[in-house]
Simulated assay, not measured.
Amino acid sequence: MPKNKGKGGKNRKRGKNEADDDKRELVFKEDGQEYAQVTRMLGNGRCEAICVDGTRRLCHIRGKMHKKVWIAAGDIVLVGLRDYQDDKADVILKYMNDEARLLKAYGELPETLRLNEGVDVDGPEDGEEGSDYIQFEDEDIDKI
């Protein structure tokens, strides 16, 4: 019979349910880093984000954050830029909602950036214009 070489089962892999409610120090960008807002999740540890400098980049979620820090569309993240690929970046840190508000108050994020708490997920209401929503025709769906 083989000896047990593991350190436990699936409950150990999940870890303790520790809440990160304690205040952590606010991390500002350095050289080679940029703030970005996630536009959509692509799967396989990747996402698409619009950086503050106006560039749309394909971002890779680093292994330390993968399956531990959940990132959704609309979240503010800190990405590390690549010297050899300008259209790709690596997600270093995800900012909580209150940290993103602080970054906006300090002037690190532009005033035109809409934070996640103000995003309308239900769609446009009566009388509002839905510029963010795309209406597809039947021909477009057949092409997909």
Score class of each variant (00 low, 15 high):
residue 59 C to F: 00
residue 36 A to S: 04
residue 51 C to H: 05
residue 99 E to T: 09
residue 76 I to E: 07
residue 63 G to P: 07
residue 61 I to G: 02
residue 78 L to A: 00
residue 72 A to I: 12
residue 66 H to A: 07
residue 71 I to N: 11
residue 35 Y to K: 03
residue 49 A to S: 14
residue 94 K to E: 06
residue 95 Y to I: 13
residue 97 N to P: 09
residue 93 L to T: 12
residue 99 E to M: 05
residue 38 V to W: 00
residue 46 R to C: 15
residue 104 K to I: 04
residue 99 E to W: 02
residue 98 D to T: 09
residue 41 M to T: 08
residue 42 L to I: 15
residue 61 I to K: 03
residue 66 H to S: 07
residue 54 G to P: 01
residue 83 D to W: 09
residue 68 K to G: 03
residue 107 G to L: 05
residue 101 R to Y: 10
residue 107 G to F: 09
residue 111 E to H: 10
residue 49 A to F: 00
residue 96 M to T: 15
residue 107 G to P: 06
residue 51 C to S: 12
residue 45 G to A: 00
residue 76 I to N: 06
residue 53 D to P: 03
residue 108 E to V: 11
residue 73 A to V: 06
residue 106 Y to S: 14
residue 83 D to C: 08
residue 82 R to K: 15
residue 37 Q to H: 02
residue 89 A to S: 12
residue 37 Q to K: 10
residue 57 R to Q: 05
residue 47 C to I: 04
residue 56 R to M: 14
residue 53 D to G: 03
residue 76 I to A: 10
residue 98 D to W: 08
residue 76 I to K: 01
residue 69 V to H: 08
residue 57 R to E: 07
residue 102 L to D: 14
residue 47 C to W: 01
residue 91 V to M: 01
residue 62 R to N: 04
residue 36 A to G: 09
residue 91 V to K: 02
residue 72 A to M: 11
residue 40 R to F: 09
residue 49 A to G: 11
residue 70 W to H: 11
residue 77 V to P: 00
residue 107 G to M: 05
residue 105 A to F: 11
residue 62 R to A: 02
residue 83 D to V: 11
residue 108 E to M: 11
residue 100 A to V: 03
residue 48 E to K: 15
residue 38 V to E: 04
residue 78 L to P: 00
residue 102 L to Q: 15
residue 80 G to L: 09
residue 86 D to Y: 13
residue 78 L to T: 00
residue 87 D to Q: 14
residue 34 E to H: 02
residue 42 L to W: 06
residue 108 E to I: 05
residue 95 Y to A: 13
residue 42 L to C: 12
residue 97 N to R: 10
residue 55 T to W: 02
residue 67 K to N: 07
residue 73 A to Y: 03
residue 89 A to K: 05
residue 94 K to M: 04
residue 103 L to Y: 08
residue 55 T to I: 12
residue 81 L to C: 04
residue 42 L to Y: 08
residue 100 A to Y: 01
residue 83 D to N: 11
residue 68 K to C: 01
residue 34 E to R: 04
residue 39 T to G: 13
residue 79 V to I: 15
residue 88 K to P: 03
residue 68 K to V: 03
